[in-house]
Design a protein around this nucleic acid. Structure first.
Length: 388
RNA sequence: GCGGCUAUGGUGUAAUGGCAGCACAAGACUCUGUGGCAGUCUCAGUACGGGUUCGAAUCCCGUUAGCCGCC
């Protein structure tokens, strides 16, 4: 992988770039749609391309469980397996440490703590989640499929990701919960940092290759909402020989804080290497995080919301399950030229969703991805013009 | 025509004389390194008319409607 910065904004940390991989070039800043199980749910790979998606992110933990990395390796790696010819990332499974751990215990999201949720019942230094065990070397999970115990640590994650074969892979980290207090996050950070070094070593010496692997490896910065921990983490991870950097974990109480916190991290990372913000990307977040200096970011929102009936349009979010749309003989967005907006109307999509027809989710998924990708495209144009 | 049974939100069902509850549907909201999941809130009912009782969805009488059986 090779990262080239074409232009740096004079009025923000935003930059334009090219991320060159063996499977083609990604123009940055760029949204990375989520393909957890080697598929963008409801779409096939050709359709995903038609949404202007440049790169996808699949998930190590989920693919390890089903179908297993051996199957994918034998099929000729992920790209061949899923017939996706463009660049790919895999997430390390570190997020599942959170989502299957404290995330499940407390019913939390990982990025921003909602006002209603008190920090009172904080997760303290030596706390363990109920269903998984986080120890010195890694994490003992229970398979959500059959309850089997399974262990994932830095070495295991890297080995699996090498077999999966994505262009960009991530270090195995602990994504801490928003309810974690300072003492917990500090201790967790030591683990994430130790694991980062193990990942680097495992990747450079693994599989008998004398030279360095063609797969780019990104380290992940943690530290939650605590400034000193974020700075410590970005200095430490940024000082290691990674090809790029992920920024994970929690970002305070609202979007302004998130912007500020991402800025702390970006200022400490090496300027020439790409930065990926993990799991963030509502439309209203995009300009902010790009101005904070983020090059790529993945987010489930366009696809996840689509399956719940939400379309993103120039007039805002629309809930297409609402009965009133049965009477609207018009496209989702009159300014949109995606295949869905050119060929289908709200009344039909509303009917499909109410009837529980999967094509309703598919049409919204297609439109939302096209809309999000176009939105980022416009931001790239703004950077080019010097507007942001 | 006669006899029996039944009648509770839009739909399907609880509540054996003591606060009419649940599910689905409808409507509003939440969801950020993916559970097509889940959660919060709202709307909405004792077929009709009498009677007994401190008190009736519940007991009694009548009306209406539906289902079953019989000439």
């Amino acid at each position: 992988m090779n990262f080239k910065i074409l232009k740096k904004s004079k009025i923000s940390r935003a930059r334009l770039g090219f991320l060159e991989t063996d499977h083609g070039v990604v123009e940055t800043p760029c949204l990375v749609p989520v393909a957890t199980q080697a598929v963008v749910k409801t779409l096939d790979s050709k359709e995903v391309q038609e949404t202007k998606s440049q790169i996808l992110i699949a998930n190590t933990f989920h693919l390890h469980l089903k179908p297993g990395e051996k199957i994918i390796d034998k099929a000729g790696k992920l790209q061949k397996f899923m017939n996706w010819k463009k660049p790919l990332m895999t997430d390390s499974g570190g997020y599942q440490v959170f989502s299957l751990g404290f995330g499940t215990d407390f019913g939390l999201g990982s990025k921003i703590l909602k006002k209603e949720q008190e920090r009172g019942e904080a997760i303290k230094e030596n706390a363990q989640p109920q269903k998984i065990k986080i120890n010195h070397d890694g994490v003992v999970f229970r398979s959500p499929i059959n309850g089997d115990e399974l262990f994932l640590g830095p070495k295991e994650s890297i080995k699996i990701q090498e077999k999966l074969g994505a262009d960009i892979i991530f270090a195995f980290d602990e994504c801490t919960a928003p309810l974690a207090d300072f003492s917990y996050v500090k201790k967790s950070l030591e683990k994430t940092h130790r694991w980062a070094k193990i990942c680097l070593k495992a990747h450079s010496t693994g599989s008998g290759q004398a030279k360095k692997s063609k797969q780019a490896l990104y380290g992940i910065v943690q530290g939650s909402r605590f400034k000193d921990l974020r700075l410590e983490s970005s200095k430490f991870i940024g000082g290691l020989d990674f090809d790029g950097f992920g920024i994970g974990g929690e970002f305070g109480n609202d979007k302004k804080e998130m912007h500020k916190m991402v800025g702390w991290v970006v200022d400490e990372l090496p300027e020439k290497k790409p930065r990926h913000l993990l799991g963030v990307g509502y439309l209203e977040d995009m300009e902010l995080i790009i101005k904070s200096g983020v090059d790529t970011f993945d987010c489930t929102v366009p696809t996840h919301y689509a399956r719940r009936g939400i379309a993103f349009t120039s007039e805002g979010k629309l809930n297409l399950k609402q009965t009133k749309f049965l009477k609207k003989r018009e496209p989702l967005d009159k300014n949109c030229i995606c295949n869905v907006c050119l060929n289908y109307k709200k009344d039909y999509i509303c009917h499909l969703l109410k009837a529980g027809e999967i094509t309703g989710m598919k049409l919204l998924t297609f439109h939302n991805l096209y809309y999000f990708n176009t939105f980022v495209e416009d931001i790239r144009t703004k950077i080019k013009k010097g507007e942001i």
